[in-house]
Design a binder for these strands. Sequence first.
DNA 1: GATCAGTGTCATAGG
DNA 2: CACCTATGACACTGA
Length: 759
Amino acid sequence: MCLKKYFTEGLIQVAILLSLVGVRLDVGPYLPASHEMILGPTSTLTQTQFHNQLDGQDLHPKSVDLDGFFTARRLLGWVRSLDRLRVPSSELETWPVRPEPDALVVGAPGQPATLEGGAGGLEVHAGDQVGSVSRSSVVAGSDYGPIGEDNLDTMVALLRRSLEEEDKDEDLYEEDTDTLWQDQSDRGRHQWPEGGEEELLVGDTWREIWRDGGPSYDRANRELAQDLSDQFASLEAQSSMSFQECLRLLEDTFPFGEETEPSDPVGVDLREASGEDPTPVRELLLSPLSSHGDPSLDLEQQWHDILAIMEPEDMDLGTDVMQSGSIQSSSLMDPVHQDVSLQQAILPRSSQDSHPFNSSFGGSVPLEAPLQLALLSPSSSVPDFDLNLTFGPSDLTDSALSLELNGTVGNPMPSIQSSLFLEEPVLPSPLGSLLDDALLDELSFQDLALEEGFNPTQASQLEEELDSDSGLSLTFSHSPASPSGSEASYSSSSSSTSSDSSVFSEEGAVGYSSDMEVIVEREEGAVGGYSPEVSKMYSTSYQKPGRFNNLPWLEQVGHDHTYNQPRATSPRQGKSLKLPKSRYSKPYKHDISDKLWGRDERRARTMKIPFSNDLIVNLPVEEFNELLTKHRLSETQLKLIRDIRRRGKNKMAAQNCRRRKLDVLFGLEEGVEGLCRHKARQLKEKAENLRSVREMKQRLSGLYQEVFSRLRDEQGRPLPATDYSLQFGNDGQVLLATRNGSASEQNCKPHKKQKDGKK
DNA sequence: GATCAGTGTCATAGG
DNA sequence: CACCTATGACACTGA
C-alpha cells in the first residue's frame, strides 16, 4: 500500500510536470479506483462501498469516510483537472531559475519556506515524512499568479533536498523494495516489447533499470531530478519556447538515460544542475530516433516509455493503444491541438464509472470512450514501485484545485464544468432555465426569482450528483466480508441477537438464525446445493437472464443496485426532494430480490432447500406447487418455503409500493415546479403589461401636454393645465373641464379635431 | 444516545 | 377460496 501510494504520488508529479510543460494529460486511468484509494483495495467487499457509491458520489454525508473521500476527491479532481491544464509557452518563458546554493528551503526573499499565497505560483513543501521516504509536494496554483523564479528555485532545490533525504533512508527503502523489485523486474521483463536491435535506447535504459532493481531505479530517480533541474534551468536560458521545444524538453526529461555517479548523493549542486550545458550526456544517451529520426515516432516512443514507467503491468495495453495510433503524433505536433490527453492516448474508458467525479471536477475528461478496460480493477492495481518523485499529495490545497479554470479549449463538455472550478454554480434545469428567464428579463426579474425562493445559492445547493454506479455490485452473499445491506446488519448483529438465535426451529422461518448459520453459510456457500435440473425445469416459465438460479450465492453479483441512485431519466434529477435514496427509483418488477436472500437464503441453506429462493419467490403458483410436489420436503421445509415466498413477494410489493409513493411525491414536486414556472411566467407577463401600460401612460401624458399647450382661451391665452383638464367622452368627444369639476363644452370640436389630428 | 433514512416483515384489505 | 398485490405499521440497522 505504501508503494502504491508513492506510485500515485509520483504519478501526480509526472502529471504536474507534463501539465506544466503544456501537455494535456489525464492520468485518471492509472489512479486506483477512488473508493479503493479511500477504503482500501478490499473495499469492494465492505458494506461501506455498498452504501457509499463513491463513484456515483453517493457518499452518505454522515459517513466517517467523508474526510477521506473529500481528500481523495480533491486530489483526484486536481489530477484529473490536469487534463485541462495547459500552460502556454509564453508563461513558461517567465520561469527563470536562479541557482540557490542552499538547497533546502530557500523561498523567495522574506518568505517562509512554504510559499503558500506567495507571489510565486509554486507552492513547495519539503520534508513531509511518510514512512521512510521523504516527500515534497509542488502545487501550482492559479491564484498565485505567474510562477516566480524564487519559487521555482525553491522547487528545484526541494527536489534535490527530497532526494537527499531519501538517500538517508535508502537502506530501509532498498530493503523494502528488493523483493518487490525482483518481482517487478520479472514482470516488467515480460512486458517490455521485443524490439531487438531496433529498440530505442530509452527502452534499453529502462529495461536495465527494471532488471537491476532498486539501486538503478534510485539512480533513475536521481537522474530524473537532475533532468528536471536541467530543464528548469534551460527554461531560464530560453527567452522564448515553442511548444515543440517544450515537447523536446519533455522528451529529454523522461528517458532517464543519464548515469550519475553513485557517489554523488543526489544533491547535485544546483549551480551545476542549472549550469550552462547540462545536456550533453543526455543527448548522447537519447534514442537515435529522438535526435535524428521522425519526431513523431520518437514521441511515440517517449510516450511508450512513460507508459512503461507508469504502468508496467499494463504495458501491453499501452502498447496496443499506442500501436492503434491513439496518440496522434500530428496533433501532438500541432500547436493548436497540443492538449493531448494521456488518457485518450492510453485507454478509453466509460464516462461513468471511470470518472467518478465527473460532475464535480469538470467534464473535460473525454467522454467518448467506447471501451472500458479493467485498469481500475484491483487485479490491475498500480504497480508496486515508487516513482520516487515523491511529491506529496497531502499538501494539495483547494487553491490548487482552481488550476486552470477557464482554459479548457479542448473541453468537450464545457457545460459540465465543475462547480468546484467555476465561480458561478451551474444551475440545474429547470430551475436554471427559470432563473435564466427571470434574470434575463430587463425588468429585473431577479427579484422575482428571489421572491419565488430561487436564488443562485439555493439553486446550487440543489445540484446533485448525476452519476450512477455501474449496476454491478460485487457483494457476495457467502462472503463474511460482504455485509451488503440487511445481510450485513444481520451478520453483524447475529452475535448480539444470539439470545434468540437458537438453531433453526419451527419458528426459524420468522426468527433469527444463529451464528451457526453463518458458519453453515460459509461452509455451504461454496457448495450451493441447488440441483441444476430444477432451474432447467422451470426455466421456461421463469427465466431471468443473467441470473444464477443454481448458483444462488452468485445472485448477488448481477443485481442492479442502481435503485440507490437518483433517477437518471427524471427531470427531477439533481433537484430537491432528497427522499429517494432507494431502489424505488426504477421500476421494480421481478428483477429485484437484492439482498432478499439475506436471512431467508441462510435459512434455506440451513434447511437444505433444494432450489433457490429466486425460484421460490418468482415461480408462478402452478409451477411453484409442482416444484414442491416434486421434492420430498418436510413440513418445516414447506413452511419455510412458503414463508420465503410470502416474504419475498411482500418485499417486492413493499418496494413497489414505496416506489409508487416516491413517484407520487415526485409528481407532486414536478407539479409544484410547473406551477412555479407558470407563476413566474404570469408574473413576467404581468410586469410586461405594467410596463406597457406605463409606456402608454407616458405617451398619453405627452399628448395631453401637447394638446394643452395648443389650447387657448377666448383671449388667446394658453390654458393653464393646473386649472383645466381634458376629459374623454364615451363617444370620442374631448371635453375641457375645470379642475374644480365643472366641465365645459368649450372648444369641444376643435379639441377633438386636434386630438385626432395628433393621432 | 438520539435521530433519521432505508429496509424487511407482518397484518390486513382489496382485486 | 386461493392467490396476488397494495399499504400501513412496526422493528431493525447503519449512518
